[in-house]
Design a binder for these strands. Sequence first.
RNA 1: UGGGGUGUGGCCAAGCGGUAAGGCAUCGGCCUUUGGAGCCGAGAUUCGUAGGUUCGAAUCCUACCGCCCCAGCCA
Length: 566
Amino acid sequence: MAAEDFTPGLNFIRTIIEADIKAGKNGGRVHTRFPPEPNGYLHIGHAKSICLNFGLAAEYRGLCNLRFDDTNPGKEDVEYVDSIMADVGWLGFDWQDRLYYASDYFEQLYEFALHLIRSGKAYVCALTAGQIREFRGTLTEPGQNSPCRERSTAESLDLFQRMRAGEFPDGSYVLRAKIDMASPNLNMRDPVLYRIRRESHHRTGDRWCIYPMYDYTHPISDALEGITHSLCTLEFEDHRPFYDWALDQLPVPCHPQQIEFARLNLSYTVMSKRKLLELVDKAYVRGWDDPRLPTLTGLRRRGYTPEAIRNFAEIVGVAKRESMVDMALLEHCLREDLNKRAKRVMAVLRPLKVVISNYPENQVEELDAENNPEDPGMGTRKLPFSREIYIEQDDFREDPPKKFFRLSPGKEIRLKHAYYIRCVDVIKDTQSGEIKELHCTYDPESRGGWTQDGRKVLGTSHWVSAAQALDVEVRLYDKLLSVANPAGEKEEKDFMEYLNPASLEIVKNCKVEPSLVAAAPGDRFQFLRQGYFCVDLDSTSEMPVFNRAVTLRDSWAKIEKSQQVK
RNA sequence: UGGGGUGUGGCCAAGCGGUAAGGCAUCGGCCUUUGGAGCCGAGAUUCGUAGGUUCGAAUCCUACCGCCCCAGCCA
């Protein structure tokens, strides 16, 4: 199924939006926002949210804002805001002039807090963090009112203003909403709205020593921006009553609707910021852009396209049940995209030299090769062919198993775009017995890869002419984890125990066809019969480096595997 | 054991009272100058379980069971 003819189905969010439009709610407007906290790199899970928010807005001729939820200066940094903007842009979305920061609303947020205090809906509390926890009660028992709860409006007002003025030490006071300490929803038990923290903020510097909490900031930010549908993940479902409460108390321009959906989980990888950070910090991977990570910068380096990721985001759907999507689906989306667009090229990862004994020495001829059978418009290229070539070691078996269609003694195969060759001799190292090279003969009548007599050959191999080949390094990536879902394992171990030791294999001295000299970082190719590869950032003209983004489906591997099982 | 969610084939996911879409994966077959791609076909007598309502239920009602989230001055 091609991306463009995929018809998006209805999901529960689209259903809500369409009902709202039909009812004339918000004047039929759709305005969403993607609100990351700049405290880490974006990953494929965020991509789902980005595609949802920007996608829905585009679909309903609405708008989507990019807003940084930067209310916790201790954890946030410009490094992250820069990477987030780069990633959202790379994915193909445009927030135009609607780049916002919650920190831009600090002054208004403060004014609204004053409003809350004046209307008796908030008070300054002197309880310590530990006391607040104790007074909060438990899941089954109601909490107790803070002794500060009945503090006068004037006193709270004075205290709060002095909190802002920096008269009190960190942690000494807090501003709390006055709701209901007996609520079965703990989020309604007088939640903290503001805390004192002398930390420098990446945007506001030292202008503030009090910072608003997420629960308080988010609904107001949404309302100030005229958001109609505020999409977030399931764990915020319990916070919705407070979201609505806050907006009901304040003179805000509108009351957005919070809608929760299940976050994306992907098999064989990790998605939490904490785990990703641990992998990076402990140097189990090379950085946030390590191609093994599900970060957008990692996927990009690996060779993923924005189109593949967007299609994936659409295809996984959106619902309220927690789920774990198979990594195979993401890989499928990449293959589907690159199959249509990637130029085919020949590369031999583990070379085995083949001497074609009846081919004239010193002769080099140019053969035509199509660049993409899926798209003739991509044209053809010239491929040098000569007496000495390399084929893949895996494409030869001295003692071939059943159904092995490749080269073996006495057998004939086709060299893609070139000639039929037949193996006549196997040259081994006299000491080790290791196969050094193959002697073959070719059929001059088979130029281009077919013969007049129409005889069948076993299989078709890729190859590279030895003299013209380029030496390159290839990095073969595999799953980050060795199990699909660590949490589903019998005994629960730390996810680090499940890291796949073979997630990266570096293969040096690979031989690729000369047309690849001009390949630049980020360029993607299909290495015939092997997979899709992307030129890595580390690549130089002296040593080109290719990352394997995803393998091609390999039916021989399946056959071989099933043979081993028997 | 308080509250909020959620249970449809191996994995996602439509369905919203009229007799189980679609995708991935899997397994067959066709085709093939990539064992790629493509094409065709197969698989839930059944929708967590048990009852009930109805001519008719995955869809409505009741009970039970499973799983997830909440006791940060994180988001």
